[in-house]
Design a protein around this nucleic acid. Structure first.
Length: 263
DNA sequence: AATATTGTTCAGCA
DNA sequence: GTGCTGAACAATAT
């Protein structure tokens, strides 16, 4: 679930809760989620520090401390940050918990344990090491950049959108929505896209991310015109009332409307 | 009981 | 090198 809109929402959540509080203890419930350090290193790097600010790049959330090391969260399929005080608000699957001076805890909650925590001393070096493409929510990500990148692609559009080393932040659900809004078949070859369609896709990347983020931040529902509200086989297409179909693209299930989205 | 789910990574093949 | 497929990772719901 966590794609760029969720990551930005998580950023807003952490920014409005867990900042500027001394970390009194780091409790590691499951070592498996530590991707680049030992429990000891994690504790030594963060205990006594505080989270001062956050930033997002693609599907990674960076929690900047005043110290030399910063924390990086990757949420896998089922992760989320949870800020709570009392036991009855404690999430079900905390894998690492950051206890704060004010009595609250910021937990890295991750049911399926595919999420990872990293320590890094440079955000930029981390992004480079992961070979991530441009973050699609960045102001630098203009149409020229997008078109130039697409020039070098030979595969299917849905796979390309989801390739984090190509573009950072778009996952399975967002790619389905971007392509539905653009009326482009998920398996259409990038080389077959016209300049016009490329521009439509580019615009819809922003529309989908902004709409999803707005819905998350303000507890609103997605518009009924979104395929994400009808994302199951046999559901009714909100545009033509035809049947939504499921296909496998790049090893993932893609949902689309065969009538509205032609190759 | 079998299958699908979300994201990443890697092996194997064209 | 690129792209596609399938598997593996974990745990849950249907």
């Amino acid at each position: 679930m966590p794609e760029l809109p969720e990551l930005l929402h998580f950023k807003h959540y952490v920014d409005s809760t867990a900042l500027h509080q001394k970390i009194t203890e780091v409790a590691i419930q499951n070592e498996q989620v530590l991707a680049s350090c030992t429990p000891k290193q994690m504790k030594e790097a963060l205990e006594g520090q505080s989270f001062e600010s956050t930033s997002v790049y693609g599907k990674y959330l960076f929690l900047h401390t005043g110290g030399p090391q910063e924390l990086v969260m990757h949420f896998g399929m089922t992760g989320r940050p949870v800020y709570f005080k009392n036991k009855d608000q404690q999430p079900d699957y905390p894998r690492t918990s950051f206890h704060l001076k004010n009595g609250y805890t910021l937990a890295f909650d991750c049911m399926r344990m595919l999420g990872q925590l990293y320590l890094t001393d440079h955000t930029e070096a981390f992004v480079k090491e992961k070979k991530l493409g441009p973050d699609v929510s960045s102001a630098d990500f203009d149409f020229g950049t997008f078109r130039e990148l697409m020039d070098g692609k030979r595969g299917m559009i849905k796979s390309s959108l989801m390739d984090q080393q190509f573009l950072a932040g778009i996952g399975n659900e967002c790619s389905d929505e971007i392509l539905f809004q653009s009326r482009v078949h998920p398996q259409k070859k990038v080389t077959d896209l016209t300049e016009n369609l490329l521009h439509t896709i580019y615009e819809n990347i922003q529309v989908v991310i902004e709409t999803k983020l707005d819905a998350l931040d303000h507890h609103k529902e997605l518009p009924d015109t979104f395929i994400l509200k009808h994302r199951e086989e046999g559901a009714e297409c909100p545009n033509c009332k035809g049947e939504i179909k499921r296909i496998s693209v790049g090893g993932r299930s893609g949902y689309y409307c065969p009538h509205c989205q032609k190759k």
